[in-house]
Amino acid sequence: MAAESAESRENLIKLVTRLVLEELAKGPGIPLGVSNRHIHLDRGDMDALFGKGCELTHKKDLGQPGQYASEETVTIKGPKGQIGKVRVLGPLRPETQVEISLSDGFTLGLRPPVRESGKIAGTPGIEIIGPRGSVIKDGSVIAALRHIHMSDKEAAVYGFKDKEIVDVEVGSPERSAVLHNVLLRVSDKYALEMHIDTDEANAVGAKNGDLVRIVGRARQ
């Protein structure tokens, strides 16, 4: 009896999952944002790099509410090389975080771990050089885990929850692929958008503004 009940629950979960994915496939899709290398600064590092009390200069809005690209750029320097004109994104954050691709890591001589944003403990160090000074960070460099921002309302409609892992079909007709291990980040502060880095986009022929679709979800 218990085995039959467990089997019934599993069949129901499979049915609900299939129906949810079918509904997603009928929708307009999820906008894609391709993230180039960039940096988020805290107040202390902003002061050290650009001058005490200096504020970021708004250049253009990004896909997420309140997020923007600034006019300010820095140079990042690793053991092997450096990369200039790395865009600073605003607003300022509690901790400095450098987001690069794995290809950038080869240029710099670093091996950035693939991490969710904010998970910087134990990551490689790097030197950040600005127009007014430089700072050496013990750990702040990641390759961002591909993810989807989704509002609470959108998640509720489709039965998703924060931190769930899904599969997403993305890319040009000639090079499309299904990307696994895509993290859902759900909050009333988010707008619907998927983020991948330039390495991932180039591999599948994807570009900013493409529409992608969730085609599966990890077993819980």
Score class of each variant (00 low, 15 high):
M1D: 11
E7P: 00
S8L: 09
R9W: 02
E10Q: 15
N11L: 14
L15Q: 15
R18A: 15
R18E: 15
R18I: 06
L19S: 13
L19V: 11
L19M: 13
L19T: 13
E22K: 14
E23H: 12
A25D: 07
P28V: 12
I30M: 07
P31S: 06
G33R: 13
G33W: 10
N36P: 06
H38W: 12
D42K: 01
D42R: 02
R43E: 15
G44I: 01
G44H: 01
G44P: 01
M46Y: 00
F50G: 03
G51T: 02
G53L: 04
G53Y: 04
C54N: 07
E55M: 12
E55K: 15
K59T: 04
K60S: 02
K60R: 07
D61L: 00
G63T: 06
G63P: 08
Q64P: 12
P65T: 03
P65I: 03
Y68V: 00
T73V: 15
T75Q: 11
G78V: 04
P79K: 11
K80E: 13
Q82C: 09
Q82N: 08
Q82A: 13
Q82D: 11
I83L: 15
G84P: 15
K85V: 11
R87P: 06
R87F: 11
V88N: 06
G90D: 05
G90K: 01
P91K: 11
R93P: 00
R93E: 00
P94S: 05
E95M: 10
T96G: 02
L102Q: 06
S103L: 05
T107Q: 03
G109N: 02
L110A: 00
L110I: 00
R111I: 07
P113C: 05
P113K: 02
P113E: 11
V114Q: 12
V114N: 14
R115C: 13
K119L: 12
P124F: 00
P124I: 01
I126P: 01
I126Q: 02
I129D: 08
G130V: 09
P131N: 01
S134V: 11
K137H: 03
K137I: 00
D138E: 04
L145D: 05
R146F: 09
R146I: 09
H147T: 10
I148H: 08
M150H: 10
M150N: 10
M150Q: 07
A155C: 12
A156L: 11
V157Q: 13
V157L: 13
K163C: 02
E164L: 06
E169V: 10
G171D: 06
S172H: 08
E174D: 14
H180T: 13
H180R: 13
N181E: 15
L183R: 14
S187K: 09
K189I: 03
L192N: 05
L192G: 09
E193F: 10
H195V: 11
A203C: 09
V204N: 07
N208G: 11
V212L: 06
R213H: 13
I214A: 13
A218R: 15
